[in-house]
Design a protein around this nucleic acid. Structure first.
Lengths: 148, 148
DNA sequence: TATTGTTATACTCTATAACTATA
DNA sequence: TATAGTTATAGAGTATAACAATA
């Protein structure tokens, strides 16, 4: 027997777009984690690998700035990619404090495969939405990101 | 002198709506945390308090299910609200395993004030968007939440 | 047997301070 | 002095297993 038969409502919270966005983000994040797990990647290590593949030679601090991640935390993600053999830290002759990040052949290979899976994941998340609706969502997300 | 003058691009990641949503959610979360800090609340303790105010007498397990949070984690949030004197755990005579959650007068008071601040925060996040655009965003978030 | 609340634990993400070696 | 990479640490969110009391 249930102690409370009365229905539970989150209607007041549903009024907040932020609340709906948090719930959607939880679902999206869990689905993306499942998508990337077979590749040995997570959302942040995938993003990091993507940036290194697409911007060969960039420095960790540039990477952290672009991904809105603290430099201190970026170290860990690059560590994990380096230990997996997908990324290298090369000394930078122009500035001996800096490192130049490059992906390996294995890194480029896993990136191509993971990227295809993430593309399918992204399409799944947007399934049933028209192109103009997706554009509106992008616009709204962009405004939230720069505003605040 | 900068070691790398070449520009860094996250254009490939920008193609993913999930990436844009993650960035927007980070900004939104940080802004909401700043909004709730003066009240001694965080996103999850505010959501929990809201549910208890709007659904007096509900059980922690119902609360966890409604907020998509594990029961084990819910315990901590109710603990914090109880220690602040905003929520009470009453024994449930119908089921001695269960607790009935109620807010105190102080809890209802801080909720009213925090809720007004969260409403202002939510409006700020959506500033510049038309009503039909907000509706589209809600629709998209709803599809992502139930889909997956 | 199943459920409720709970404890313990682990992993992830985020944020800050401080150190070193360079510039 | 300022910056790049790093280490250490703490707070917060998430997830699972397991236990005692109760149904």
């Amino acid at each position: 027997m249930r102690a409370e038969a009365t229905s539970v409502s989150d209607a007041r919270l549903r009024a907040f777009v932020g609340y709906n966005m948090k719930r959607a983000m939880n679902v999206l994040q869990a689905d993306l984690a499942r998508t990337l797990q077979p590749f040995g990647l997570r959302m942040l290590t995938f993003s990091t690998l993507s940036m290194i593949v697409e911007n060969p030679g960039l420095r960790p601090s540039q990477l952290a700035e672009a991904l809105l991640i603290e430099r201190a935390n970026m170290v860990v993600y690059v560590d994990q990619l380096e230990q997996a053999g997908w990324v290298t830290r090369a000394p930078n002759p122009l500035d001996r404090r800096a490192h130049a990040l490059h992906c390996t052949e294995a890194g480029a290979c896993v990136y191509d495969q993971a990227r295809a899976a993430v593309e399918a994941h992204d399409r799944r998340m947007l399934d049933g939405l028209r192109a103009d609706e997706v554009a509106t969502v992008r616009k709204a997300l962009g405004r939230i990101e720069v505003g605040s």
